[in-house]
């Protein structure tokens, strides 16, 4: 097994009474992209701070690049970590290029990267303007350029696409994919990101400081057993008379089938000549998120105090 970039074992963090994180275990390999989802206060930011070495753990073990992030030796590793905080507003009176140069200097990154990164995030035209004249999206892109400084081996991005227009979001995901190909491990932290599915290898869903689900999207779909929705056109009469398919039909005429029944169902549908169109939609990340969250709430209500073991 290759060494994990991030390795957390039963990590907990308590603030007085509040259990911000509870028994989180996570192995993040090189080149892996993890989506970290959860609503406000679920512990996402605390988890990031612990990985970044800003917060100490209350219990449990954590190593980043094989070292305790609190230790002195981990110091130089910080040059290989990129972080985009939520709601950061950079020095308003500085220009874009000045802000980025400052951070580059602190990270001992060669100056030429500043221009390259501004180009990458599409801010070259505005780099000589003061940050206070920037729109929300431009500030966010400046923040991303900051996180990309020094070609990080580990990237933590908190709400990276907030305020970005669709084109910029696409470009952002391109950058993520490129960094991933170069072997960077990335943690994307968000409520739910539309369109993030193709870009993450695994997802972790946090609620109340616990990991209520972790795994690849396929695994999560499997465990949740949410149906695949199949829409057909032109054969609604035949569907109702087909003994196999009729049982799957829901109110709006679409078919709800389990993942393992998908192919056989599709074959059956395809055998009808009248079919003019078909669409297959697996459970979206958002549906999975809702499913696991409501599941967790239900279990919490059942046994308020007893510890709930994470699904994975």
């Amino acid at each position: 097994m290759t060494a994990s970039i991030v390795s957390m074992t039963n990590v907990s963090k308590h603030f007085q009474q509040l259990k911000a994180l509870n028994n989180i275990s996570l192995q993040l390999a090189e080149g892996e992209v993890l989506g970290l989802f959860g609503h406000n206060g679920a512990g996402k930011t605390t988890m990031m701070k612990i990985i970044l070495g800003i917060e100490k753990t209350s219990s449990g073990d954590i190593t980043i690049f094989g070292r305790d992030p609190q230790s002195k030796q981990a110091w130089q590793d910080r040059r290989h970590i990129g972080y985009l905080p939520e709601n950061v507003s950079f020095y308003d009176h500085l220009t874009g290029v000045e802000v980025l140069s400052y951070f580059a200097k602190l990270k001992s990154v060669p100056r030429r990267q500043v221009a390259e990164l501004l180009e990458l995030v599409g801010l070259t035209h505005a780099m000589q303007r003061q940050v206070k004249t920037y729109s929300k999206g431009m500030r966010q892109r400046l923040g991303l350029a900051q996180a990309f400084l020094g070609e990080p081996k580990l990237l933590l991005l908190d709400e990276p696409t907030v305020g970005l227009d669709p084109t910029a979001t696409q470009e952002f995901y391109h950058s993520v994919d490129r960094l991933k190909q170069r072997g960077a491990s990335i943690i994307l932290c968000s409520h739910v990101l539309p369109g993030v599915e193709q870009h993450i290898g695994r997802a972790m869903i946090l609620s109340g400081g616990r990991a209520i689900a972790i795994g690849s999207l396929a695994q999560l779909r499997e465990q949740a057993s949410l149906p695949v929705i199949i829409q057909t056109q032109g054969i609604s009469a035949q569907l109702n008379s087909d003994p196999l398919l009729a049982s799957f039909i829901k109110d709006n005429g679409s078919l709800h089938v389990q993942e393992h029944e998908k192919i056989s169902t599709l074959k059956q549908i395809m055998s009808y000549d009248g079919i003019t169109d078909v669409s297959v939609e697996a459970a979206s990340l958002e549906q999975l998120y809702q499913y696991y969250l409501s599941n967790a709430t239900a279990i919490k209500e059942l046994s308020n105090a007893t510890a709930f073991k994470g699904v994975a």
Binding site: I54, R78, I81, V88, Y91, L106, K107, Q146
Partner: peptide, 14 residues
């Protein structure tokens, strides 16, 4: 308040 303090502390800067 701006959030840059948190960011600075994730840099190799004590």
């Amino acid at each position: 308040e701006a959030g840059t303090l948190l960011l600075l502390l994730t840099y190799p800067l004590s």
